[in-house]
Design a binder for these strands. Sequence first.
DNA 1: AGCCCGTCTCAGCGCGCTCTCAGGTTGGCG
DNA 2: CGCCAACCTGAGAGCGCGCTGAGACGGGCT
Lengths: 218, 218
Amino acid sequence: MRLLVVEDEHRMAAALQRGLTHAGFTVDVAADGVRGLELATSVRYDAIVLDIMLPGISGYEVTKRLRAKGVWTPILITSAKDGDYDQADGLDLGADDYLTKPYSFVVLLARLRALLRRGAAPRPSVLSAGALRLDPAARELTIDGAAVELTGKEFAMLEYLLRHQDRIVSKAELLQHVWSDPETAGNAVEVYAGYLRKKLGRDVIVTVRGAGYRLNPL
Amino acid sequence: MRLLVVEDEHRMAAALQRGLTHAGFTVDVAADGVRGLELATSVRYDAIVLDIMLPGISGYEVTKRLRAKGVWTPILITSAKDGDYDQADGLDLGADDYLTKPYSFVVLLARLRALLRRGAAPRPSVLSAGALRLDPAARELTIDGAAVELTGKEFAMLEYLLRHQDRIVSKAELLQHVWSDPETAGNAVEVYAGYLRKKLGRDVIVTVRGAGYRLNPL
DNA sequence: AGCCCGTCTCAGCGCGCTCTCAGGTTGGCG
DNA sequence: CGCCAACCTGAGAGCGCGCTGAGACGGGCT
């Protein structure tokens, strides 16, 4: 079992390496986010222990970039923060567990073993239609393999259309699901249909007059 | 993606709402079973996160009543109980997944995404007659497999004829059901019969002089 | 503070849908 | 065969839906 520990505080890193090695793991240590990314992408670890507060790239960012690159190695995030907001943040970005400092080494070991037992997270399924491939977990969209940047609302609207590509989606429905406000009088949906068309191509979204929108069934 | 969280414990509900919102969902919260039922029946959610222990109606009961009403939105039940007896109970009543507290937020997210991937209710069937196949949900019509474009009124009129293809449909009836205005004096129905004939072929719609129209029983 | 980005509103406009009208065609009936 | 009612159809006017560009607004970042 090979682990990667990403931790900038030297004493902490050394203690972890000693303890984990003693527990039978092979342990590599990276002192900052950049080095951690390099190692994690080049070596196939069984799990990663990742500190949030890092010089350079934060632990959040490291997680995000790894997942975006298709690296699904189990990640255990450790942090001095303890608000559940931060926890939600980290977990949302694709981490598998979360530990707040100070933590007992025994707990860390137990959680790590639980992670290893579970194995690497299965790559979440992507939604696709024609040349479109949308990954809800990574919040990523590619069209013919090329990455396309979308804003939050654009992404949400396209995701909803993709999830219901077999039928027509009304504007009211989009307002309910993508916008929380069903009483919005404006024409936001039409505007965002325009945005998406500008980024994805004019033919991707078909207008069904008087009914709503539908993805082009290519 | 719009979710409904039914949870009476306020802190828990707030945390869920925050985390799920941050994950890109639109989240409504109901504090008890009655309110949850109201919302679930009036809004078309993509999934429901439902606590078992609720003041008033229990989560079991909510699930049961929703299913009885024909609402087949995916339901994920959460509970402090952990006996498999309870789990079997919940799943038996029509829930789609079951999570025992305390649970990790990542796990909840993953299960939710799995539910959404699976999707909800079975699609309503398509109407067909002869070579015609009409899908009300997709607002699509194919004739001998080839797609045919219809306008809103054309589609509505053909759908009504298809739903009553075993009898003659009078012009007054069509005015009532397709046009909401029974006082329309014009000959709109005849005009649209003409439009449909032009698109579907002359023989598809048969005029019964003095009575109305009927689909050709091929 | 200044800037950029994302979101949403607003007004103008083009165009497709809807429906009316007038004249033509068909069918039933004496 | 002639008449009338029922039905068909081509032309076109009105209108409302949806598209678009411009800009206001707010939040995050430098």
